[in-house]
């Protein structure tokens, strides 16, 4: 790992901790309990995955490789369609069980995060299931 990348990584981790520290000092440790803990964990996991994918894509771009082609576009569109469809059912369930959520922010935040997770899972499944009968 070169110095530039190491510096960037350390800076990102420091910024994350500063932001988390700021949130804790502002709203207390209660924020990291129950559903909020799930939301924060999901944000960190999704953030890490997105960062890794972005770094990988940038590296490929610099190496002169194609980042997006007909297959990746097809997968993305198909995953988007199914993710939208399944998200509709998810929102229906969320509204059915809205009393279980501590506040509206948790409900909406959780819903948006779940939509992102659904998109990721759908994309993964579609990639695995591609076959010549399409």
């Amino acid at each position: 790992m070169n110095t530039k990348r190491k510096t960037l990584m350390i800076t990102s981790i420091l910024i994350t901790f500063v932001i988390l520290g700021f949130i804790v000092s502002e709203r207390g440790t209660k924020l990291f309990q129950g559903l909020n803990l799930f939301i924060f964990t999901a944000i960190i996991v999704i953030g890490a995955i997105v960062s890794i994918v972005t770094i990988k894509k940038n590296r490929e771009k610099k190496a002169g490789l194609t980042i997006e082609d007909e297959l990746s576009i097809k997968i993305k569109y198909k995953a988007g369609y199914f993710a939208y469809l399944y998200s509709m059912y998810m929102w229906l369930f969320i509204f059915l069980f809205k009393d279980k959520f501590p506040n509206i922010e948790s409900m909406l935040g959780g819903g948006v995060l779940l939509s992102a997770i659904i998109f990721g899972i759908t994309k993964f499944i579609i990639k695995k299931e591609i076959n010549d009968k399409e």
């Binding site: 194609t66 082609d69 007909e70 076959n131 010549d132 399409e134």
Partner: peptide, 16 residues
């Protein structure tokens, strides 16, 4: 002008 992954799928006969 495609990704290596696409060539892999083509070779496996998984993509038209």
């Amino acid at each position: 002008g495609v990704r290596r992954e696409t060539i892999v799928f083509l070779e496996k006969g998984k993509y038209n």
